[in-house]
Every structure is written in structure tokens, then in C-alpha cells.
Amino acid sequence: MTASALTRPGERDRLSSKIAEIDWRLVGLISIIAGVGCAMQYSIAGGSWEPWALKQMIRFGVLLVAMLVLAMVHPKWWFRAAYPMYAVLLFMVLLIEFTPLGYEPAGAGAKNWLNLGFTRIQPAEFMKIGLVLALARWYHDHTAQDARWSWKLLIPAGLIGLPFILVAKQPDLGSAMIIGLTGAVLMFLAGLSWRVIAAGIAAVVAIVPPFVMFGMHDYQRNRVLTFLSPESDPSGTGYNIIQSKIALGSGGVMGRGYGLGSQSQLEFLPERHTDFIFSTVAEEFGFLGSFTLIACYIGVILVALRIASLSYSHFGRIAASGMVAFFALFVLINGAMVMGLAPVVGVPMPLLSYGGSSMMTIMFGFGLVLSTRVHRYAELPKGQGLF
């Protein structure tokens, strides 16, 4: 009897067999988006590799290798690390709030970085992965009835609420939104009762207005109110949205051409290499270029969701779906933000925007998605949770 008859494809231990199981469509789409990001940073810098494009290219190359290495890791290690990783990352967020190790970069408006001496990190970014793994572990160890409606749901609600409150208090509204919405999406995917969902939506609708008026810092409140009417303060809080809309509209159907975007090249467009880089793409490559890029993002989401659906373990399905959820939320929120459909909250366009912490989070997340694909037949024990 051959080895292939004794083992299912995802259970073979040879490295060559695992490499063959990687979904190279997903790797290719990720590489295309990151390549476009590097090309745009080269264009924005006036046809120079410095200060952004070269660093971003090297960073992506290193993280691409790390993603493929993580794809070889068996899901049982992700499973065992879920709660400890969540606890360590939550502790780091607490260190920012209650110790001198937390600091606020110049002009950032939020104390959301942790200075460890030998390096500086942004724990809120990695908290997204820690939350997804912790929730996946919890739902794996509990019944469908517990996931639908039970007092035990207070535990995943607490897992979501703690980092959400701490990160919002920094205040880092963008990361807090991603954490809260990712958790909500996972609870929905796990089978949460529609009655609870309806009650939750009603509660959010009731809470948002007083939170905006009394719970936000003045500059955050101005951002929210200004996005409704940016023309009311065109040289102040409305400037970013107005310039972004000009860039989006000036590209037309075909765009102005690579390196010829006036809004980005003349530096009218703020944060043109980070939060508003999609506006630069629209200006230089027009509707067709923007549509093609969005199609690549949709392709990544659909392929990754397909991978999640193939997992034999509930942990694998929930974890992979959670990684897709926060990636999709990045795309949705940034896209709405640059088009003036949402307040400017500092959420980057994944793989496209310049930055290390965000790209590292995304690539590590897709490493887990690919691990789910490679080991899709792996079965994990139930009833092993800490709660």
C-alpha cells in the first residue's frame, strides 16, 4: 500500500509535500498588491527608492519568507499558543497605559507605541491576531449552543472588550474599531443568535451619538463631524478628505499616468504614502487601475475564505476566517475613509500603505491562513480550554 493511501494530502510531513499544498494563488495576489504599493511609493518620492520604496520592498521580502515558514507550522502550535499570546499582548497594551514604556510618536495623536529599549512595537496591531486566535480557541472548545446564546458568551465578549477599551483609551480609534468589529464578525460567524445581533446593533446605534459627543477627544470628534461636511473647514480638519476627493476625481477613467499625479507629487495630498495611498493610485491610474487593485483585494478575500471553509477543525475555520475578517475591514474602512464615506481614523490600506507593524500583522495572519490550507485535515482536541 502506498504512502498516499495511508495518509491524506494535508497530513504528510515531508517539506516538499507541504510546499505543494500552499495555495500559490493567494501568495501571488498578496505579492501583486505589495508590488503595487512599492511602485507607488517609488512614484510618490519623485522616482526615488528613498525614503520609502526600498525599505518597503525589503520588508515585504523578509515577511514573505516568514509567511511561508509559518505556513509549515502545524495548527496545534497556534492552538496551544492562543491564550498565552493573547495574555502577553494584552499585558503589552496595559504597559502602554500604566507605565513610562508607552510613548506617543510626534504628531500621532495617540500613545500607542511600546518602547522596549532594543525595539519599538505597536501592540494594538498584533492584538488583532491574538484576539482572533483566542476567540478561535474558545469557540473550538464549546458547543454550538454556547456560541448561539449562553451566559458563557460573556467570556468572548470580555476577550473583545478588554483590548477594545484599552486601545480606544490610548486613543487609537482606528485599531479599536478593527478589534471590535473583528470580534463581532467572529461571534457572528460562530453562530451567534440573531436576537443578540439585533440587540447589539440597537445598542451600538444608541451608544454612538453620546460617545461621539462626550467620550471622544476634541480632535477625534472634529474628525467625525467634519467628514459629514468637510467643506465647513476646508483648511483644517476637512483638508485631508477634500484633497483625497480631488485626487480620486482627477484620475478619471485612465489616470494621469505613472508619476504624474499632481496631488501626490506636489504634496497637496496628506499622508500620501500611508493612509491615503489609494487616492494616489486612483489619480495616476484612474478608475481602471483602482478597479483592478480592488479586484485583487477581493480575490485575496475569496481565496482565503475558501481555505477557511476547507479546514476540518473548528479552530482552523474560525481562526482563518478571523484573519480574513480584519484584512477585509482594513480594506473597507480605508477605502471608505479616502472617499469621504467614513471619518479619517488612521487605518492603512493593507499591503499597499507604507509601514512595518501593519504589514507584519497582515503577513503573519496570512501565514496562519496558509497553515490552515497546508494542514486542512488536522484534527484538534476539544474541551481543552482554560475556561
Rank of each mutant, 00 (worst) to 15 (best):
L89N: 14
P381W: 05
I96T: 15
T143D: 04
S229Y: 13
S357C: 06
T226N: 10
F366R: 13
L116D: 04
P230V: 02
Q384A: 10
F79H: 11
M363V: 08
V347D: 06
L352P: 01
Y377M: 12
D23R: 03
I362Q: 04
L370K: 14
G37S: 09
K55Q: 05
K128R: 15
L90H: 14
R317P: 01
N334G: 06
P156S: 06
L293H: 13
D146E: 12
M57Q: 07
G46N: 00
R137W: 15
A3L: 09
A39R: 03
N334I: 07
G46V: 13
G346H: 06
A106P: 11
S371I: 12
E231I: 09
D141L: 07
V205H: 02
A190N: 03
G259M: 01
L133Y: 09
Q243D: 14
I318R: 06
D13V: 08
S48P: 04
E11M: 00
L54H: 04
A53E: 01
L15Y: 02
G130N: 09
A202Q: 05
G367T: 11
G251D: 03
Q265G: 10
P343E: 00
M349F: 04
A5G: 01
R256F: 00
A168Q: 14
L186F: 13
F188E: 03
M177L: 15
L192A: 10
P350W: 15
L162E: 04
P348T: 11
A176H: 05
A82R: 05
A110L: 11
A247Y: 09
G109I: 09
S290M: 12
S262Q: 07
